[in-house]
Design a protein around this nucleic acid. Sequence first.
DNA 1: CATGAATGAGCCTTCATTCAT
DNA 2: CATGAATGAAGGCTCATTCAT
Lengths: 211, 211, 211, 211
Amino acid sequence: MSEAVETRRARIARRQVDKFGERRAELAAAALHTLAELGFARTSLREIAQNSEFSHGVLHYYFSDKADLLTEAVRQFEEICVTRYDELVAAATSADGLRTGFADAMAATLAADARVHRLWYDLRNQSLFDDSFRKDVLELDERRTDMIWRVVDRYAELAGATVTVAPRIAYAMLDGIFEQALLRHLCDDDNAVRDLPAVVANVLTAIIAKA
Amino acid sequence: MSEAVETRRARIARRQVDKFGERRAELAAAALHTLAELGFARTSLREIAQNSEFSHGVLHYYFSDKADLLTEAVRQFEEICVTRYDELVAAATSADGLRTGFADAMAATLAADARVHRLWYDLRNQSLFDDSFRKDVLELDERRTDMIWRVVDRYAELAGATVTVAPRIAYAMLDGIFEQALLRHLCDDDNAVRDLPAVVANVLTAIIAKA
Amino acid sequence: MSEAVETRRARIARRQVDKFGERRAELAAAALHTLAELGFARTSLREIAQNSEFSHGVLHYYFSDKADLLTEAVRQFEEICVTRYDELVAAATSADGLRTGFADAMAATLAADARVHRLWYDLRNQSLFDDSFRKDVLELDERRTDMIWRVVDRYAELAGATVTVAPRIAYAMLDGIFEQALLRHLCDDDNAVRDLPAVVANVLTAIIAKA
Amino acid sequence: MSEAVETRRARIARRQVDKFGERRAELAAAALHTLAELGFARTSLREIAQNSEFSHGVLHYYFSDKADLLTEAVRQFEEICVTRYDELVAAATSADGLRTGFADAMAATLAADARVHRLWYDLRNQSLFDDSFRKDVLELDERRTDMIWRVVDRYAELAGATVTVAPRIAYAMLDGIFEQALLRHLCDDDNAVRDLPAVVANVLTAIIAKA
DNA sequence: CATGAATGAGCCTTCATTCAT
DNA sequence: CATGAATGAAGGCTCATTCAT
């Protein structure tokens, strides 16, 4: 087999993979809305297909099963989320500014993306009962932890202080805060979004100490 | 119709109601185990019935639907949980003692009751998607908030300090911590139970300030 | 619990079991025709249900799965078959008479029950590929072996001779003969039924030897 | 149009046909393994394609349907099988030698080719339910009959005896024996292979008679 | 009251087949 | 010729729910 052929085959194979991945992403994106609306358990693949321009057969063609689709959908959403605050961190010039910016951003995504956020919690909840989800959930949780830590760590630095809790603790606390706010927001409690900034600021203040 | 008869009827009716309630409690208790094992979505009424000494027909008689049963089951469990730390609070004589006792108790129930705790989170997760669970979840969350506050508030008092966060924040933070620990514990991470006391103590310390 | 109650419960339980078994038998009998017409692989439970007076749900209620239904159906048919020749054996007064009677009876069932016989071979064929069928197939094959041996053994006795092959060999040979005849009969070869008696008689003669 | 062109076209056409046939053979050979492993009903064209170096689209190009492929695959295998014992017959110098050689060869192929043998029985079983297989099955069975007859006939000749059963009967009997042995062998019964030689010898002895 | 037989909608998944590239 | 993306019918199975006993 000549080198030229080898190369050509490899190029085709790569392109295939890309196309496959693109289609997966496309389908996952299409599935995201339906999943976020009904939750994993109540959403059928047929329903997802009907809300998209594809047949339900194609979902099975691109995903090994329903769980695979859910994971991919959430992963895709989180892919964007976990860098959500990075610009804030990069642009921050004062502790107060970062704290406020971060707190406001959290409230903003709570208001804007509530339905998709609950899908993440749905996935994590599945993992409490089903082994097969755990690997992905743990991985995503780690990335979320890092995301939060980048904020908290920089915040302390700007404040000339140190964080008094470990990254995982900081994440767990803020995640707990967000989850509660999400619940209240979905229960049509308008205070949820309004109060969140102050609460988050409160937490940030509580977990640093002047050096 | 004589008064005596009226009274007797009422007595019977009351007894009936009591019996009805007792039966519900009995069935909910029997369901708890199966629900905790499989989660709400994966548990069928048949499965619950098979793991109990009842027929599945009777479940439909005493509960309007699956959701009704789940709520009753978790409510029953929480009835115990929401007072879990009260004795600790009553017996505490020092801040350090309460902090350690509370942290250890949390780790203990994490290890002992993991499967039922995840059922609570499952219920709360359901409520993110399903209206019908929300009222109960909100109520339970409030009682859990109170429970946590009794600990935190007393801890600060013993330490001659004040809590720097509101009750709901304290609860949300500690619940976030516990949820993470539960996930890791269910993932067979032995560190989850071992590390929890220190983490909880860390959080408690972080949210009080000397007066 | 009083003895009376115990007894009553046991009686009810037994009656339940009987009713359950009866329904299974009823459903298996109803399924037999459809299965015999299309074969295991091509027959869907829905189709079976449609050809009966039941819903397809009830099939799942009484049978753990499709294989269970097939096995039960065949087993029920064979239950009758394996005694098919016993009256002949009991009534036989001469070797020639038994031989002729047996050979004719085989041809008769070939003509009358061809479609159901092929279902037995279908089941046995499944067992070549699927473990889960093997236990039942082996058991049924053993009973068929015994059935044949009762004939062959008695035939030799009446002829004042001994059988020169073991029971299993006698069965395997005659089964091979029958299977071939069945194939030809189903291929609309009229000779199949007509020739079978002579062939069977031929085989019987070949496997005994004067003492 | 010149003769030369005509000829050239014909040559190309012939070559095409050959290539077509070759390709079919190649694909059938690749399919054989998967079919033998899973059986006709459980094997999908996708599975066959995945276990080969071909796409599943090409299977549809070269075969009209699954049945066509199965028949081609088994026919290919049988091409070898139907002459399996011919060398034995040609080389045989004594009745005992041929009998032993044949019996041993049968046991050997039972042990070595069990999975492909069951595919043959699977095909024959299909033909009990499906017309479309019958022509091929009948033809193959005839060739198998001839193959067995060449052995049996020669064996009788060497023994100075005559066969007491017709060719078809001899084949049906030995095939029944082999089918039973195959079942037991696939059930992990080690005796199946070990006992077969004696059984086959037994049968051969039983169906000849000194002239 | 309690049972469990029966229903049938709905789910996930498989697969032969078609067809644009 | 060959590929593999896409389709959609069909299948086995689950399950909440109904209802006669």
